Simulated scan of single mutants.
Amino acid sequence: MDLEAVRTFLLAAQTGRFQDAATELGITQQAASKRIAALEKELAVRLFTRSARGAQLTIDGQAFLPHARALMQAEAKALASVRPERRALRVDVIAKRSGMSALLRGFHEARPEVELDVVTLVDIGQALDAVRGGEIDATFRYVADVRVLPPGVESARVFDDRLDLLVGPRHPLAGARTVTPAQLAGHRIWIPGIVPDGVEWSVYYKKLAAEFGLSIDGIGPFFGSDHLMDVIADSVDVASLVAEKPRLAWPDGHDLRRIPVLDPTPVYPHSLVWRSDNPHPVLALLRGHLAATGRPVGAPGSWTPAGA
């Protein structure tokens, strides 16, 4: 259906004169009459009765009127959905409970008037394709090698998320105030969800294990952070590594110990990835917020995999 003809119909119905509708649209009266005639032909009904006093809606015209308004509303929504200044900024985070999500939540709290659409894409390849194809505006990722980024896609490292050791009260390291990566060798570290050829955070922990001779695995099912804390609290030999963001709150009686890892401190490097030609104004606001509030990356005494 020709939406310009529908728009002309609505103005003619409102003003009662084709000439007034034509003036409003910046067209001739003849052009307005042709649009209405074409619409009537398509609908196979008369929409107006014409007389010297103007144009009056017929019964069919009155029946069509609310649907014509709905068509105009649908057009406005469709246009708004693809206009950068009108639609929500669509951002991907690898998980809703993650350091990346915490960064985005901090931006939302600082700019609550900004609309965000938060999605979760597990695979980095899928996320990069979505950025390049315009399905999302940006993604938070561990970019192990910038050479994997598609042409026209940029990244900026915005936050290094410190990793702490999490143990229960009966674990051999429970009494330590700090630990080094070397002291973790020989202890089982459980990072649930790791798969052999999995997402980029699996790659990160694989490199961490290789660097310091650690035993890191994701054996067994994972039912969320509460399950992780239950397992750690009851275990005498299982520990985990947890990121600084978001903070964990464990139930009374668990008596978990969160121990800083030093000399060096493993940090998970978060990068924001976006398409270079993306004009969304909120994307610039997000990048500016992260630059102003993020912790300086590559701090002395921290460790990230080579190339990160």
Rank of each mutant, 00 (worst) to 15 (best):
E4R: 05
A5I: 00
A5G: 04
V6W: 03
L10Q: 04
L11N: 11
L11D: 13
T15N: 10
G16Q: 06
D20P: 08
A22G: 10
T28A: 05
T28C: 07
Q29A: 14
Q30W: 11
A32S: 13
S33I: 12
K34M: 13
R35N: 02
A38N: 13
R50V: 15
R50A: 15
G54L: 06
G54W: 08
I59P: 01
I59M: 05
G61W: 07
Q62H: 02
R69K: 13
Q73K: 14
Q73Y: 08
A74N: 08
A76I: 00
K77D: 13
S81W: 02
R83A: 14
R86K: 14
R87N: 04
A88I: 11
L89M: 04
L89R: 03
I94Q: 10
G106F: 00
G106P: 02
F107V: 03
H108S: 11
A110Y: 11
P112E: 08
E113S: 09
T120S: 10
I124H: 03
G125S: 09
A130I: 10
G134Q: 09
I136N: 01
D137M: 06
A138K: 09
R141Y: 11
A144I: 00
D145R: 06
D145V: 04
V146Q: 10
P151N: 09
P151R: 12
G152Y: 06
L163S: 08
L163I: 04
D164H: 15
D164I: 10
D164R: 12
L165C: 03
L166G: 07
V167S: 01
R170S: 12
L173M: 04
R177T: 14
R177S: 12
V179P: 00
T180R: 05
A182E: 08
G186M: 06
I189G: 01
W190E: 09
P192G: 11
V199Y: 01
E200P: 01
E200I: 01
V203Y: 00
Y204N: 05
K206M: 02
F212I: 01
G213R: 02
P221K: 11
F222V: 08
F223W: 10
G224H: 01
G224I: 00
D230Y: 07
I232S: 04
I232W: 01
D234P: 04
S235K: 02
V236A: 15
V238E: 09
A239S: 15
S240K: 06
A243Q: 14
A243G: 15
E244R: 10
E244T: 14
P246Q: 06
P246D: 08
L248R: 12
P251M: 15
R258V: 15
I259E: 05
V261E: 03
V261G: 00
D263W: 00
T265H: 07
P266D: 00
V267R: 02
S271P: 05
L272Q: 02
W274M: 08
R275G: 11
S276Q: 15
N278C: 06
P279T: 01
H280C: 04
L283F: 02
L290H: 00
A292S: 12
A292R: 13
T293G: 04
T293S: 02
G294L: 07
P296C: 05
G298L: 03
P300V: 02
G301K: 08
S302Q: 07
W303T: 03
W303D: 06
